[in-house]
Design a protein around this nucleic acid. Structure first.
Lengths: 209, 209
DNA sequence: CACGATACATAACACTGCTATACCTAGCGA
DNA sequence: TCGCTAGGTATAGCAGTGTTATGTATCGTG
């Protein structure tokens, strides 16, 4: 029997991998077309690097989407919880919207094929922060007979809808401040919160105070 | 001064124009890649037809988006108003969602660049039906101190968000029935409707009864 | 009927993502 | 220390994309 001891040769450079992802994200936020050759040229490598690291452009897009979700989760994690869980939910929504508005092209690319991420858990981490705050609202008696995951999903979906309509230019920019807090208040009130108290909490959280 | 009477020669064939739009929409709903050559081949014309009629692929996409909004508006117009404006709003939402679910690729393409449509008025016609129903809810005393356009926008944006998350596979298919009526009820209740009466109206409208 | 402007067909261009091939560098065993 | 080897990287070419230049056919007009 052939018992050949295989050698372990050179390994792909992780720096090239992150450079490609970050360059692609940078070109995305700069509204430049993200082409294979332009990307490789900017990073200073050959087009083949995209294939050794990501197995082609679709793989690169997956990595870029994942990086977008990771940045989003980091942005949400910076929101420090307070003793008002409804305010925290609104603050998370404001941070979410701010992240999307800062790099709209990246946000839109994230949801082009958000279903097949290399590591879905990374995206779930951000959503878990919403569910956690909703759970605290239930525990605090602000939400009654409400499923925290359902409330978080509805809050997220409504914010996502307003965001996309604003980012695509269908709604004007000020529609974010006009409709997002109102939708949040509607969702949280429907979950059982007192309307006036809810409105005050959302106002505080959305303003970031 | 040269006063040359210009002749008006042959005019582009409108049938080719509509054939290109409908073929593109058909390939879109069939999840086939809509390429210039494949499109021209299916229609039985040359690639140049796309340029004489639409000045290139971006122009064709604009026409396809407009056709999508026109179909959507036709689908919404089929919803017959009743004496319950809140039910009508929910019925419009259900028709809207059904239209989007039937051809998801077309719906997503519509909002890829919905801001610059050849004729924005066509898209506004569908939205006007929502505003009209909201106005009737105000007139009927169901909504109090509510701006019909704002209510319609929030209803639309929340439904749009759920739809896109479902169409992109982030949320499961049954999320539509689970969250869309609940969001509608939240929005309409926030506009002043009685919670229980609102829930009944939304249930009736969403079910199409 | 003849003219001429224009829709349409054909072919070539620049660009895209991708792949086959050559090189060459990193790491192990002798 | 040195040679071997496996895999990362560079180069060149491929099929396919949208676009454009050029030729041809056709219709409305005088």
């Amino acid at each position: 029997m052939l018992c050949i001891v295989r050698q372990v040769p050179r390994t792909p450079d992780p720096a090239v991998r992150v450079a490609l992802i970050e360059q692609a994200a940078a070109m995305l936020v700069a509204r430049e077309p993200v082409t294979l050759r332009a990307l490789a040229g900017r990073v200073g490598t050959s087009t083949m690097a995209v294939y050794t690291h990501f197995d082609g452009m679709p793989g690169l897009w997956g990595a870029v989407r994942q990086e977008g979700f990771a940045r989003l989760a980091r942005g949400l994690a910076e929101v420090s919880p307070s003793d008002d869980p409804v305010r925290d939910l609104a603050a998370l929504g404001a941070a979410y919207a701010a992240n999307a508005v800062e790099n709209p092209a990246l946000y839109r690319a994230m949801f082009d094929a958000a279903a097949d991420l290399p590591d879905p858990g990374a995206a779930g981490a951000g959503f878990a922060l919403l569910v956690d705050a909703a759970q605290r609202a239930v525990d605090a008696g602000r939400f009654v007979d409400a499923d925290p995951a359902a409330v978080a999903t509805r809050f997220w979906a409504s914010g996502h809808g307003v965001l996309l309509l604003v980012l695509s230019g269908v709604l004007p920019d000020d529609a974010l401040d006009e409709h997002s807090p109102a939708l949040a208040t509607a969702v949280f009130t429907a979950a059982g919160d007192d309307p006036e108290r809810c409105a005050a909490s959302v106002r505080a959280g959305w303003a970031g105070s």
